[in-house]
Simulated scan of single mutants.
Amino acid sequence: MDEAEGESSISEEDLDLPFIEFLKKQKLTPKMIGVVLYAIAMADYDQEDDDCCGKLLTTRDGIKAVAVYVKSIERFVNAKGAFIYPMHGHGELPQAFCRFAAVKGALYVLRMPVIALLMDKEKQHYIGTRLASGQDIMCQHLILDPSYKIPSELPSDASDSNSTRKVARGICITKKPVKPNSSNVVVVFPPKSLHQQQDATLRVLQLSSNVSVCPPEMYIAHLSIPCVDAYTGKLYINKAIEVLLGSETSNDSKGHLETTREDNNDVNQGLIWKCIYVQEITQGTPGTILSCPMPDEYLDYRNILESTKKLFADIYPDKEFLPRNSAPQYADDDPDPPE
């Protein structure tokens, strides 16, 4: 289904409706509505409760999300579903960027911490960084991780205007899949499916050795859910682990980080090791120092890519973002192009 085609067949009045109301008008069953909202459109919050819903999905946005899902199905020959995961994990993505940037003339420096920011006090503008080696790197634009703490005596528009939210995360190493005969799979717990007070969607991404992220006959499960505090976030993560693996888990969520090596009974149930923690997601904004958003609770990269494109446009308004190079042209008298 094409996104524009889907919208053109729906009236403007319906496009502005909450997506859940539009789905009800289509006479879908409650179960099918839940599948569309939380497993396909990937709604983050309870769409039936206007009071607690952090983000009510409109029909317009819902159709766009469904279109992305449909267009992603069997996009690659060896991927039957709508999701594909990079080999060797997400760490390959910055490595790919590093290689791409190097081809374009960029310089990557590893294992060299930044110890200070350099500033032109007259212009009230940052002009570079100082490395642990003592070397100063001067630049016209400075882009930092939004969590980087800027000294309070210096202007820091980006960090002052940051908005933060919390995401509870869990990582489990298991001896059995969360779903029988599955290797790489996404599991979605809609709001209120784990706990009556659960107002956000909890997502589980299970990966196996066929994407080179764990040893053979083992699995890694990543769990995440937006939360307002550490206690409720960890409570839902623990409950999801219990449901998926049949293992009783501790609800002691006073600490920020829980790391557990499970006992023999848990190993028999499949759980070998787990780590549960709460992360503050900081969104950077343009200012004296530019910044990109941190990895968030979503399973795709749309927010990061859109923010990156906007940041690039702010710095280079006349340049094209990641232009595609045309195929090289070879002279007629040189039939064999270089390898």
Results as ranks from 00 to 15, higher is better:
residue 168 A to N: 07
residue 140 Q to F: 14
residue 137 I to Q: 02
residue 131 L to T: 07
residue 139 C to S: 14
residue 164 T to H: 13
residue 171 I to H: 09
residue 168 A to H: 00
residue 139 C to A: 15
residue 152 S to L: 12
residue 140 Q to R: 15
residue 123 K to D: 00
residue 141 H to R: 12
residue 175 K to L: 10
residue 150 I to E: 01
residue 144 L to Y: 08
residue 174 T to V: 02
residue 159 S to M: 08
residue 170 G to N: 03
residue 126 Y to R: 00
residue 145 D to I: 04
residue 162 N to H: 07
residue 176 K to C: 05
residue 135 Q to W: 08
residue 124 Q to W: 08
residue 175 K to P: 00
residue 148 Y to S: 15
residue 171 I to C: 06
residue 146 P to K: 02
residue 177 P to S: 06
residue 161 S to R: 10
residue 147 S to T: 12
residue 131 L to R: 08
residue 157 D to M: 06
residue 173 I to E: 03
residue 134 G to F: 01
residue 122 E to K: 14
residue 164 T to Q: 11
residue 172 C to Q: 03
residue 126 Y to I: 00
residue 111 R to D: 15
residue 159 S to K: 03
residue 138 M to L: 14
residue 153 E to D: 14
residue 117 L to E: 01
residue 163 S to W: 13
residue 150 I to T: 09
residue 163 S to P: 08
residue 147 S to N: 11
residue 159 S to L: 05
residue 147 S to Y: 07
residue 143 I to H: 03
residue 142 L to A: 04
residue 139 C to L: 08
residue 141 H to A: 11
residue 118 L to I: 02
residue 156 S to A: 11
residue 145 D to N: 13
residue 162 N to A: 13
residue 176 K to S: 04
residue 121 K to I: 12
residue 142 L to C: 09
residue 124 Q to M: 11
residue 114 V to E: 07
residue 167 V to M: 06
residue 145 D to A: 15
residue 175 K to F: 04
residue 114 V to N: 04
residue 119 M to V: 15
residue 164 T to P: 03
residue 141 H to E: 10
residue 126 Y to C: 02
residue 174 T to P: 05
residue 164 T to E: 10
residue 176 K to W: 05
residue 144 L to C: 12
residue 157 D to P: 01
residue 155 P to W: 02
residue 146 P to E: 05
residue 150 I to D: 01
residue 146 P to I: 00
residue 131 L to E: 01
residue 172 C to K: 00
residue 120 D to N: 11
residue 137 I to V: 15
residue 138 M to G: 03
residue 170 G to C: 03
residue 157 D to S: 07
residue 126 Y to H: 01
residue 112 M to Y: 07
residue 152 S to T: 10
residue 134 G to P: 00
residue 114 V to S: 02
residue 165 R to H: 10
residue 135 Q to L: 06
residue 162 N to Y: 01
residue 176 K to V: 07
residue 118 L to T: 03
residue 112 M to R: 11
residue 162 N to C: 14
residue 137 I to L: 13
residue 147 S to R: 08
residue 163 S to E: 14
residue 139 C to D: 05
residue 173 I to S: 02
residue 122 E to S: 15
residue 132 A to Y: 09
residue 120 D to I: 07
residue 157 D to A: 08
residue 175 K to N: 10
residue 113 P to D: 13
residue 141 H to Q: 11
residue 111 R to Y: 12
residue 166 K to G: 08
residue 135 Q to K: 11
residue 129 T to M: 10
residue 152 S to P: 04
residue 120 D to R: 05
residue 174 T to G: 04
residue 122 E to I: 13
